[in-house]
Amino acid sequence: MNRIEKIVKMIRKEEPEVLLRTEEEGQFPVLRVERDRVVPVLRLLRDDFGFESLMCETASDRGDRIDLIYHLFSTPHRETLVVKTVLSREKPQVETAEDVWKSANWYEREIFDLFGVEFIGHSDLVRILLPQDWVGHPLRKDYRPAPEYHGMKIEY
């Protein structure tokens, strides 16, 4: 039994009601977790499987939904694991992973800024890259900027 199967078995034992699926065809093993249980699963992965850093947290607009993608890494095992969850496009909401890894704080602010995903329980959820009075979330596929910003015409 390889490690990813072990991880899945363990999570099934700890969190029996979690719906998850694994995909193996890509570069790394992918764990698909439902939105409500993603943070407990992440915490379990950190505590029991040694994934001590969150390399990257990002989102992707897939047209009908928003995918949230976590890339975890474990230095002692030299192992990468991808955790994915699906959010609705109209009202994307998910619990924050800030308590699990500190680096998630800024990643989540960036995702909030560029995709408009709301992280429940985040300590400081404000725009990070764009100005505070900016309108819209640019990395969404249907984004159209406001006609002007403080008197400057936005040509896009």
Binding site: E52, S53, L54, W101, K102, S103
Partner: peptide
Amino acid sequence: VLTEADALSYN
């Protein structure tokens, strides 16, 4: 000073 635990947690 940046400790090892912080360095890993903040990646």
